[in-house]
């Protein structure tokens, strides 16, 4: 492969009880590229995303993000709290339900990672937080409480909070699925600008038009397997697998003109 791989997953398996949610997944994300994970609910795409930063620890497989790699193949020691935390600190994650810390102000949310994890002095962290809040268009909300914000604003704060760790990659887990339709655009605009800056991103999404327009590659998953993978426009507009076609047929009305 000529492009450098930023995220590399090899042979990743995960079961919850008797249900195998990820069946031998191999996935690469090139540095600076955007990959969209699509598929029906229960296909394992969120579990796959969560295993990239080890919020879900796989049963088997090899995971590398940037310089850091962890091997979960049999015989390897399981990483402890310190290793897991260090690994996660290099990736940013944005959740469907925002998960802002409700007992902290907006700027404290953004400062939490740098101050607690990176031991950055508070004054520096505050400056950084204000820069990032300006970047997501919320400079005037620094001292607001999260529960006074709209869903779209909360999600933009969550993006700023993740960016504050200066992550090598950003993971988005259905970042717009809990938003009212009129608020989706403002969050997608922020993600789009990150893509333009060259941030490596892996996103689980149900916004097919967005995946087609912003992602470089699209990965279609079903029943814990990668069914089809390729350039975004090709997978979404002319899928080669019947399962991908069947899934995408539910969306074509909403795809709109390209």
């Amino acid at each position: 492969m000529s492009v450098q791989k930023m995220i590399e997953l090899v042979g990743v398996r995960k079961s919850f009880g008797k249900v195998e949610v990820l069946k031998d997944i191999t996935l690469n994300v090139a540095r600076g590229s955007v990959v969209a994970l699509i598929g029906p609910s229960g296909s394992g795409k969120s579990t796959l995303l969560r295993s990239v930063n080890l919020l879900t620890v796989p049963d088997q497989g090899f995971i590398r993000v940037g310089e850091q790699a962890l091997d979960f193949t049999r015989g390897h020691r399981l990483p402890g709290d310190r290793e897991l935390s260090a690994f996660r600190a290099r990736t940013g994650m944005v959740f469907q339900t925002f998960n802002l810390f409700p007992h902290m102000s907006v700027e404290e949310n953004v400062m939490a990672g740098p101050v607690k994890v990176l031991r950055m002095p508070k004054a520096d962290a505050r400056t950084l937080a204000h820069e990032l809040l300006a970047k997501v268009g919320l400079a005037d909300k620094a001292t607001a409480r999260p529960d006074t914000l709209s869903g779209g604003q909360r999600q933009r704060v969550a993006i700023a909070r993740a960016l504050a760790m200066k992550p090598e990659v950003m993971l988005f887990d259905e970042a717009t699925s809990a938003l009212d339709p009129e608020l989706v655009g403002e969050v997608l605009a922020v993600i789009r600008s990150l893509a333009a800056e060259g941030m490596t991103m892996l996103l689980v999404t149900h916004e097919m038009a967005f995946a087609r327009d912003v992602a470089d590659r699209v990965v279609f998953m079903r029943d814990g397997c990668v069914v089809e993978e390729g350039p975004a426009r090709q997978v979404i507009e002319t899928p080669s697998q019947p399962a991908t076609r069947a899934f995408l047929s539910h969306f074509h009305n909403g795809l709109g003109p390209s």
Partner: peptide, 15 residues
């Protein structure tokens, strides 16, 4: 909420 644990862990916080 479990999401609070996820959010803290995702930032790299220790237990």
């Amino acid at each position: 909420d479990m999401g609070q644990w996820d959010a803290g862990r995702a930032l790299g916080m220790r237990r």
